[in-house]
Protein backbone atom coordinates (compact mmCIF):
# COMPACT_ATOMS: atom_id res chain seq x y z
CA UNK A 1 0.00 0.00 0.00
CA UNK A 2 2.78 2.37 0.90
CA UNK A 3 4.43 1.62 -2.41
CA UNK A 4 1.25 2.55 -4.23
CA UNK A 5 0.87 5.76 -2.28
CA UNK A 6 4.46 6.70 -2.94
CA UNK A 7 3.88 6.02 -6.60
CA UNK A 8 0.69 8.08 -6.56
CA UNK A 9 2.48 10.95 -4.90
CA UNK A 10 5.30 10.68 -7.42
CA UNK A 11 2.74 10.97 -10.21
CA UNK A 12 1.82 14.49 -9.14
CA UNK A 13 4.94 15.49 -7.23
CA UNK A 14 7.01 18.56 -7.98
CA UNK A 15 9.63 16.38 -9.65
CA UNK A 16 6.98 15.34 -12.13
CA UNK A 17 6.07 19.00 -12.74
CA UNK A 18 9.72 19.88 -13.19
CA UNK A 19 10.40 17.14 -15.68
CA UNK A 20 7.07 17.66 -17.41
CA UNK A 21 8.02 21.30 -18.03
CA UNK A 22 11.52 20.43 -19.22
CA UNK A 23 10.05 17.77 -21.49
CA UNK A 24 7.32 20.07 -22.86
CA UNK A 25 10.09 22.43 -23.92
CA UNK A 26 12.01 19.55 -25.49
CA UNK A 27 8.85 18.35 -27.19
CA UNK A 28 8.55 21.63 -29.10
CA UNK A 29 12.22 21.52 -30.01
CA UNK A 30 12.80 17.83 -30.60
CA UNK A 31 9.31 16.42 -31.08
CA UNK A 32 7.98 19.04 -33.46
CA UNK A 33 11.02 20.79 -34.97
CA UNK A 34 13.60 17.98 -34.71
CA UNK A 35 16.12 20.12 -32.81
CA UNK A 36 18.48 18.33 -30.44
CA UNK A 37 18.77 20.51 -27.36
CA UNK A 38 20.91 18.55 -24.91
CA UNK A 39 21.35 21.51 -22.61
CA UNK A 40 17.80 21.93 -21.36
CA UNK A 41 19.15 21.80 -17.82
CA UNK A 42 21.14 24.96 -18.60
CA UNK A 43 17.91 26.80 -19.40
CA UNK A 44 16.43 25.45 -16.20
CA UNK A 45 19.48 26.70 -14.29
CA UNK A 46 18.96 30.19 -15.69
CA UNK A 47 15.29 30.19 -14.70
CA UNK A 48 16.19 29.13 -11.17
CA UNK A 49 19.18 31.41 -10.67
CA UNK A 50 17.33 34.31 -12.28
CA UNK A 51 15.01 34.35 -9.28
CA UNK A 52 17.63 33.36 -6.70
CA UNK A 53 20.16 36.02 -7.67
CA UNK A 54 17.61 38.77 -8.22
CA UNK A 55 16.02 38.20 -4.84
CA UNK A 56 18.79 36.94 -2.55
CA UNK A 57 21.81 38.72 -4.00
CA UNK A 58 20.29 41.94 -5.31
CA UNK A 59 17.24 42.22 -3.09
CA UNK A 60 14.78 42.54 -6.00
CA UNK A 61 11.32 41.07 -6.25
CA UNK A 62 10.49 37.43 -7.00
CA UNK A 63 8.53 38.35 -10.09
CA UNK A 64 11.30 40.53 -11.48
CA UNK A 65 13.60 37.57 -10.90
CA UNK A 66 11.29 35.29 -12.85
CA UNK A 67 11.43 37.77 -15.72
CA UNK A 68 15.21 37.95 -15.51
CA UNK A 69 15.48 34.17 -15.65
CA UNK A 70 13.22 33.85 -18.67
CA UNK A 71 14.99 36.71 -20.45
CA UNK A 72 18.33 35.00 -19.79
CA UNK A 73 16.92 31.83 -21.37
CA UNK A 74 16.00 33.79 -24.50
CA UNK A 75 19.53 35.18 -24.68
CA UNK A 76 21.06 31.72 -24.26
CA UNK A 77 18.82 30.33 -27.01
CA UNK A 78 19.83 33.12 -29.37
CA UNK A 79 23.49 32.67 -28.53
CA UNK A 80 23.40 28.93 -29.19
CA UNK A 81 21.01 29.05 -32.10
CA UNK A 82 22.63 31.76 -34.18
CA UNK A 83 25.74 29.75 -35.06
CA UNK A 84 24.40 26.20 -34.96
CA UNK A 85 20.92 26.19 -36.44
CA UNK A 86 22.34 26.37 -39.96
CA UNK A 87 24.41 23.24 -39.35
CA UNK A 88 23.85 19.51 -38.91
CA UNK A 89 21.66 18.60 -35.96
CA UNK A 90 24.59 17.24 -33.89
CA UNK A 91 26.25 20.63 -33.69
CA UNK A 92 23.35 22.05 -31.71
CA UNK A 93 23.43 18.96 -29.48
CA UNK A 94 27.11 19.41 -28.70
CA UNK A 95 26.88 23.18 -28.27
CA UNK A 96 23.92 22.99 -25.91
CA UNK A 97 25.35 20.27 -23.69
CA UNK A 98 28.62 22.17 -23.51
CA UNK A 99 26.88 25.45 -22.71
CA UNK A 100 24.85 23.87 -19.92
CA UNK A 101 27.97 22.36 -18.33
CA UNK A 102 29.77 25.67 -18.72
CA UNK A 103 26.95 27.49 -16.94
CA UNK A 104 27.00 25.00 -14.08
CA UNK A 105 30.78 25.27 -13.67
CA UNK A 106 30.60 29.05 -13.92
CA UNK A 107 27.85 29.33 -11.32
CA UNK A 108 29.46 26.99 -8.84
CA UNK A 109 32.99 28.40 -8.88
CA UNK A 110 34.05 29.89 -5.52
CA UNK A 111 35.15 33.07 -7.32
CA UNK A 112 31.51 33.77 -8.10
CA UNK A 113 30.34 33.08 -4.55
CA UNK A 114 29.32 36.69 -3.94
CA UNK A 115 26.74 36.50 -6.68
CA UNK A 116 25.79 32.86 -7.10
CA UNK A 117 26.62 31.47 -3.69
CA UNK A 118 29.27 29.23 -5.24
CA UNK A 119 28.99 25.55 -4.38
CA UNK A 120 26.59 26.37 -1.57
CA UNK A 121 24.00 27.89 -3.88
CA UNK A 122 21.39 30.37 -2.69
CA UNK A 123 18.35 30.08 -0.45
CA UNK A 124 15.41 32.09 0.76
CA UNK A 125 14.01 33.76 -2.32
CA UNK A 126 10.58 32.24 -2.76
CA UNK A 127 8.76 33.98 0.11
CA UNK A 128 6.85 36.31 -2.16
CA UNK A 129 5.47 33.35 -4.06
CA UNK A 130 4.21 31.53 -0.97
CA UNK A 131 2.67 34.73 0.43
CA UNK A 132 0.09 34.43 -2.32
CA UNK A 133 -0.92 30.96 -1.20
CA UNK A 134 -4.62 30.59 -0.42
CA UNK A 135 -3.75 27.47 1.63
CA UNK A 136 -2.29 28.03 5.11
CA UNK A 137 1.31 26.95 4.52
CA UNK A 138 1.64 24.52 7.40
CA UNK A 139 -1.84 23.05 7.35
CA UNK A 140 -1.99 19.39 6.39
CA UNK A 141 -4.22 18.15 3.59
CA UNK A 142 -5.04 14.57 2.66
CA UNK A 143 -6.40 14.40 -0.88
CA UNK A 144 -6.72 10.72 -1.92
CA UNK A 145 -5.09 9.71 1.32
CA UNK A 146 -1.79 11.35 0.38
CA UNK A 147 -0.34 13.87 2.77
CA UNK A 148 0.42 17.37 1.47
CA UNK A 149 1.19 20.55 3.37
CA UNK A 150 -0.53 23.76 2.32
CA UNK A 151 2.79 24.93 0.94
CA UNK A 152 3.15 21.86 -1.25
CA UNK A 153 -0.43 22.08 -2.36
CA UNK A 154 -0.05 25.72 -3.45
CA UNK A 155 3.05 24.91 -5.44
CA UNK A 156 1.47 21.84 -7.03
CA UNK A 157 -1.63 23.84 -7.95
CA UNK A 158 0.36 26.57 -9.66
CA UNK A 159 2.76 24.08 -11.22
CA UNK A 160 0.11 21.85 -12.70
CA UNK A 161 -1.89 24.85 -13.91
CA UNK A 162 1.20 26.01 -15.73
CA UNK A 163 1.67 22.55 -17.20
CA UNK A 164 -1.97 22.47 -18.30
CA UNK A 165 -1.73 25.88 -19.98
CA UNK A 166 1.41 24.89 -21.82
CA UNK A 167 -0.10 21.59 -22.93
CA UNK A 168 -3.01 23.59 -24.31
CA UNK A 169 -0.60 25.91 -26.10
CA UNK A 170 1.34 23.00 -27.60
CA UNK A 171 -1.94 21.40 -28.66
CA UNK A 172 -2.97 24.62 -30.42
CA UNK A 173 0.46 25.01 -31.97
CA UNK A 174 0.48 21.42 -33.14
CA UNK A 175 -2.76 21.96 -35.06
CA UNK A 176 -1.77 25.35 -36.47
CA UNK A 177 0.09 26.22 -39.65
CA UNK A 178 3.03 27.18 -37.42
CA UNK A 179 3.20 23.65 -36.08
CA UNK A 180 2.88 22.35 -39.61
CA UNK A 181 5.98 24.27 -40.65
CA UNK A 182 7.90 22.89 -37.67
CA UNK A 183 6.94 19.34 -38.58
CA UNK A 184 7.96 19.97 -42.18
CA UNK A 185 11.34 21.20 -40.97
CA UNK A 186 11.73 18.07 -38.85
CA UNK A 187 10.92 15.89 -41.85
CA UNK A 188 13.06 17.67 -44.42
CA UNK A 189 14.23 21.19 -43.96
CA UNK A 190 15.26 21.63 -47.58
CA UNK A 191 11.73 20.88 -48.68
CA UNK A 192 10.40 23.52 -46.29
CA UNK A 193 12.97 25.97 -47.56
CA UNK A 194 12.06 25.28 -51.18
CA UNK A 195 8.46 26.14 -50.30
CA UNK A 196 9.42 29.58 -49.02
CA UNK A 197 9.65 28.90 -45.30
CA UNK A 198 12.33 30.74 -43.34
CA UNK A 199 13.59 27.56 -41.74
CA UNK A 200 16.32 29.22 -39.70
CA UNK A 201 13.90 31.59 -38.02
CA UNK A 202 11.35 28.88 -37.27
CA UNK A 203 14.04 26.75 -35.66
CA UNK A 204 15.13 29.74 -33.64
CA UNK A 205 11.57 30.31 -32.46
CA UNK A 206 11.27 26.68 -31.40
CA UNK A 207 14.61 26.82 -29.60
CA UNK A 208 13.62 30.00 -27.75
CA UNK A 209 10.14 28.86 -26.79
CA UNK A 210 11.37 25.44 -25.65
CA UNK A 211 14.22 27.01 -23.71
CA UNK A 212 11.93 29.49 -21.97
CA UNK A 213 9.66 26.64 -20.92
CA UNK A 214 12.74 24.85 -19.59
CA UNK A 215 13.59 28.00 -17.62
CA UNK A 216 10.05 28.03 -16.22
CA UNK A 217 10.65 24.46 -15.09
CA UNK A 218 13.80 25.54 -13.30
CA UNK A 219 11.94 28.41 -11.66
CA UNK A 220 9.22 26.09 -10.40
CA UNK A 221 11.74 23.58 -9.09
CA UNK A 222 13.75 26.28 -7.29
CA UNK A 223 10.58 27.73 -5.81
CA UNK A 224 9.54 24.29 -4.63
CA UNK A 225 12.83 23.48 -2.95
CA UNK A 226 13.30 27.12 -1.86
CA UNK A 227 16.96 26.82 -2.82
CA UNK A 228 19.28 26.53 -5.76
CA UNK A 229 22.28 24.24 -5.71
CA UNK A 230 24.56 24.28 -8.75
CA UNK A 231 25.17 20.56 -8.60
CA UNK A 232 21.54 19.70 -9.18
CA UNK A 233 21.90 21.05 -12.74
CA UNK A 234 23.81 18.07 -14.09
CA UNK A 235 23.60 17.00 -17.74
CA UNK A 236 21.80 13.84 -16.67
CA UNK A 237 18.74 15.95 -15.85
CA UNK A 238 18.32 16.78 -19.53
CA UNK A 239 18.53 13.11 -20.40
CA UNK A 240 15.92 12.28 -17.80
CA UNK A 241 13.64 14.79 -19.50
CA UNK A 242 14.36 13.13 -22.85
CA UNK A 243 13.53 9.77 -21.34
CA UNK A 244 10.22 11.19 -20.07
CA UNK A 245 9.43 12.74 -23.44
CA UNK A 246 10.22 9.65 -25.45
CA UNK A 247 8.39 7.40 -23.01
CA UNK A 248 5.25 9.51 -23.33
CA UNK A 249 5.61 9.96 -27.07
CA UNK A 250 7.13 12.82 -29.03
CA UNK A 251 5.12 15.38 -31.00
CA UNK A 252 2.02 14.82 -28.85
CA UNK A 253 0.88 17.60 -26.54
CA UNK A 254 0.33 15.27 -23.56
CA UNK A 255 3.33 13.02 -24.24
CA UNK A 256 5.82 14.81 -21.99
CA UNK A 257 3.37 15.08 -19.09
CA UNK A 258 2.35 11.44 -19.19
CA UNK A 259 5.98 10.46 -19.67
CA UNK A 260 7.24 12.52 -16.73
CA UNK A 261 4.54 11.29 -14.36
CA UNK A 262 4.97 7.71 -15.46
CA UNK A 263 8.73 7.86 -15.27
CA UNK A 264 8.66 9.11 -11.71
CA UNK A 265 5.98 6.71 -10.63
CA UNK A 266 7.99 3.84 -12.13
CA UNK A 267 11.17 5.02 -10.50
CA UNK A 268 9.40 5.43 -7.19
CA UNK A 269 8.06 1.90 -7.38
CA UNK A 270 11.41 0.35 -8.27
CA UNK A 271 13.04 2.39 -5.57
CA UNK A 272 10.54 1.27 -2.94
CA UNK A 273 10.73 -2.34 -4.06
CA UNK A 274 14.52 -2.38 -4.02
CA UNK A 275 14.60 -0.75 -0.61
CA UNK A 276 12.06 -3.22 0.73
CA UNK A 277 14.12 -6.09 -0.60
CA UNK A 278 17.30 -4.84 1.01
CA UNK A 279 15.99 -3.79 4.43
CA UNK A 280 14.24 -5.55 7.30
CA UNK A 281 15.34 -8.42 9.50
CA UNK A 282 15.81 -10.92 6.75
CA UNK A 283 16.41 -8.99 3.52
CA UNK A 284 15.99 -10.83 0.21
CA UNK A 285 19.04 -9.06 -1.13
CA UNK A 286 21.79 -8.32 1.32
CA UNK A 287 22.51 -4.63 1.65
CA UNK A 288 26.16 -5.52 1.20
CA UNK A 289 25.33 -6.28 -2.40
CA UNK A 290 23.00 -3.37 -2.96
CA UNK A 291 23.63 -0.36 -0.75
CA UNK A 292 21.61 2.84 -1.02
CA UNK A 293 24.03 4.35 -3.50
CA UNK A 294 23.68 1.29 -5.68
CA UNK A 295 19.90 1.50 -5.44
CA UNK A 296 20.03 5.09 -6.67
CA UNK A 297 22.35 3.99 -9.46
CA UNK A 298 20.01 1.16 -10.39
CA UNK A 299 17.34 3.72 -11.22
CA UNK A 300 19.67 5.33 -13.72
CA UNK A 301 20.61 1.97 -15.17
CA UNK A 302 16.92 1.29 -15.73
CA UNK A 303 16.39 4.71 -17.33
CA UNK A 304 19.33 4.07 -19.65
CA UNK A 305 18.13 0.61 -20.60
CA UNK A 306 14.62 1.98 -21.11
CA UNK A 307 15.87 4.70 -23.46
CA UNK A 308 17.74 2.17 -25.58
CA UNK A 309 14.78 -0.20 -25.68
CA UNK A 310 12.39 2.60 -26.63
CA UNK A 311 14.62 3.83 -29.43
CA UNK A 312 15.04 0.28 -30.72
CA UNK A 313 11.50 -1.00 -30.44
CA UNK A 314 9.07 1.87 -29.93
CA UNK A 315 10.61 5.16 -31.02
CA UNK A 316 7.10 6.59 -31.14
CA UNK A 317 6.76 6.12 -27.35
CA UNK A 318 4.47 3.86 -25.39
CA UNK A 319 1.32 5.56 -26.63
CA UNK A 320 2.48 6.53 -30.10
CA UNK A 321 0.86 5.13 -33.20
CA UNK A 322 2.58 2.45 -35.18
CA UNK A 323 1.67 3.82 -38.62
CA UNK A 324 3.85 6.90 -38.44
CA UNK A 325 6.83 4.79 -37.66
CA UNK A 326 6.28 2.17 -40.31
CA UNK A 327 6.50 4.99 -42.83
CA UNK A 328 10.06 5.55 -41.68
CA UNK A 329 11.11 2.17 -42.90
CA UNK A 330 10.57 3.12 -46.53
Amino acid sequence: MEILQNALKALVAREAIYFALLAIGLNIQFGYAGLLNFGQVGFSLLGAYGIAITVTTWGGSYWLGLGVGLAAAVVLALLLGLPTLRLRADYLAIATIAAAEMLRLGFRTPSATEITGGTQGLQGFSGEFYELSPFPLDKKYHPFGILFTGQELWLLTVGWTLVALLVLAVWLWGRSPWGRVLKAIREDEDAARALGKNVYWYKMQALIVGGVIGALGGAVQATATRSVDPDTYLPIVTFYAYAALILGGTARPLGPVIGASLLFALLSVTDSVLRDLTTGDNPVISSDILDSQAIAATRFVLVGAGLIALMAFRPQGIFGSRTEVSIDAK
Binding site: L290, A297, T298, F300, I308, M311
Partner: peptide, 29 residues
Amino acid sequence: PLRKRRVGLISALVASIGLSILMRHLLLI
Protein backbone atom coordinates in the same frame (compact mmCIF):
# COMPACT_ATOMS: atom_id res chain seq x y z
CA PRO B 1 20.95 -4.47 -34.84
CA LEU B 2 19.83 -0.84 -34.71
CA ARG B 3 21.20 -0.22 -38.20
CA LYS B 4 19.39 -3.36 -39.38
CA ARG B 5 16.16 -2.01 -37.94
CA ARG B 6 16.84 1.20 -39.88
CA VAL B 7 16.74 3.25 -36.73
CA GLY B 8 17.48 6.84 -37.72
CA LEU B 9 20.62 8.66 -36.73
CA ILE B 10 18.88 10.87 -34.22
CA SER B 11 17.19 7.89 -32.59
CA ALA B 12 20.57 6.15 -32.50
CA LEU B 13 22.06 9.21 -30.88
CA VAL B 14 19.40 9.14 -28.17
CA ALA B 15 20.06 5.42 -27.73
CA SER B 16 23.76 6.18 -27.25
CA ILE B 17 22.78 8.51 -24.42
CA GLY B 18 20.77 5.68 -22.90
CA LEU B 19 23.78 3.42 -23.22
CA SER B 20 25.99 6.03 -21.62
CA ILE B 21 23.66 6.44 -18.63
CA LEU B 22 23.36 2.67 -18.28
CA MET B 23 27.08 1.97 -18.45
CA ARG B 24 28.07 4.83 -16.17
CA HIS B 25 25.73 3.78 -13.39
CA LEU B 26 26.55 0.10 -13.73
CA LEU B 27 30.11 1.15 -13.13
CA LEU B 28 28.97 3.15 -10.12
CA ILE B 29 27.31 0.05 -8.70
